[in-house]
Amino acid sequence: MAETIVTPKKYMKYLGIWIDDKTIFDEHIERTCKKADRQVTALTKILPNIRGPGSNKKVLYGVVPSVLLYAAPVWARNGFGRRVHLDNLEGVTEADKLRERETTVNEWQDRWERNHSTAQWTKRLIPHIKSWLKCDFKTLNYYVTQALTGHGSFRMYTLRIEKSRNDLCKYCGERDDPKHTDFECNRWHAQRTGLETYFGAQITPENLLETMVRNRRSWTEGVT
């Protein structure tokens, strides 16, 4: 060592974990999320956009949680992990967990309301995150996911991914997007009328999911 100057680093990688000088693991979390995001992007490219993934490709998605949760017991007690691993901390009461969850949901809602660039259709359907999260009987399938995201067999979307030649509805010739298919097209008028009769009100993008999450029967009626 003698006169050699050893300069400490802010971060170092040891056994696959990025350790920082304050042991809050922010660098590890950031790098891990970016790595997982790259894997999701790569997997998305090999999955079909219209009919959903086959069972063999669904197995590949197990890789992503493995990346995210690698060595979690080491870093979960600090930084971001504090919120997702409260059950593992000593001295944490149920009241503490509820307060922490309430804070997280409120922050999420605030970010959701301030977002004006992405997921605007989903935001329109789910304006209030808390009521969506409280619904413990909701189930998602291929068709519900399409309706929520706007990614699926809508001509507007299939034209964008070069799977169709135009964005016109094959039933009525109007521009086909999620709002048109679910709330306007005459092809599904009978189904909408039946649902409105059951709900006792006209359904709109703003009230459909808020109405469906009220009880299990309403959710079942909505998805069928």
Rank of each mutant, 00 (worst) to 15 (best):
E3H: 13
E3M: 12
T4W: 10
T7S: 05
T7W: 06
K10F: 04
K10L: 07
K10Q: 11
Y11V: 09
M12C: 03
G16Y: 10
W18R: 03
W18T: 01
I19N: 05
D20V: 07
D21F: 00
H28P: 04
E30W: 02
T32F: 01
A36T: 03
D37I: 08
D37A: 14
D37R: 08
Q39C: 14
V40M: 11
T41I: 14
A42L: 00
L43F: 09
L47A: 03
N49Q: 13
P53A: 07
P53D: 07
N56Q: 14
K57L: 13
K57V: 11
K58Y: 03
Y61T: 13
G62K: 01
V63Q: 05
V63T: 12
V64K: 02
L69V: 11
A76Q: 06
A76K: 00
N78P: 05
G79N: 09
F80Y: 09
F80E: 06
R83T: 13
R83S: 14
H85P: 06
H85G: 11
L86P: 04
L86E: 07
D87F: 08
N88R: 15
N88C: 14
L89K: 15
L89R: 15
E90F: 12
G91W: 07
G91I: 10
G91F: 08
G91K: 09
E94Y: 07
D96H: 10
L98T: 14
L98S: 12
R99Y: 11
R99C: 03
E100L: 09
E102Y: 00
V105M: 07
N106E: 15
W108F: 14
Q109A: 01
R114H: 06
S117I: 08
T118H: 02
Q120R: 13
W121G: 02
R124C: 09
L125G: 00
I126G: 04
H128W: 04
I129A: 02
S131Y: 13
W132G: 08
L133E: 05
K134G: 00
D136H: 11
D136W: 00
F137L: 01
K138H: 05
T139M: 01
Y142I: 06
Y142S: 03
G152I: 00
M156F: 11
M156Q: 13
L159E: 08
L159R: 05
R160S: 04
R160H: 11
E162P: 00
K163S: 04
S164I: 04
D167F: 06
D167W: 03
C172Y: 10
R175F: 10
D176W: 03
K179N: 10
E184M: 02
C185A: 02
R187I: 04
W188R: 03
Q191R: 15
R192T: 06
R192P: 06
G194C: 12
G194V: 02
G194Q: 14
G194A: 12
E196T: 13
Y198R: 05
A201F: 13
Q202L: 14
I203G: 01
N207M: 09
L208H: 10
V213C: 04
V213N: 07
R214H: 13
N215D: 15
R216N: 08
R217E: 14
W219F: 06
E221T: 05
G222F: 08
G222E: 03
V223I: 15
T224V: 01
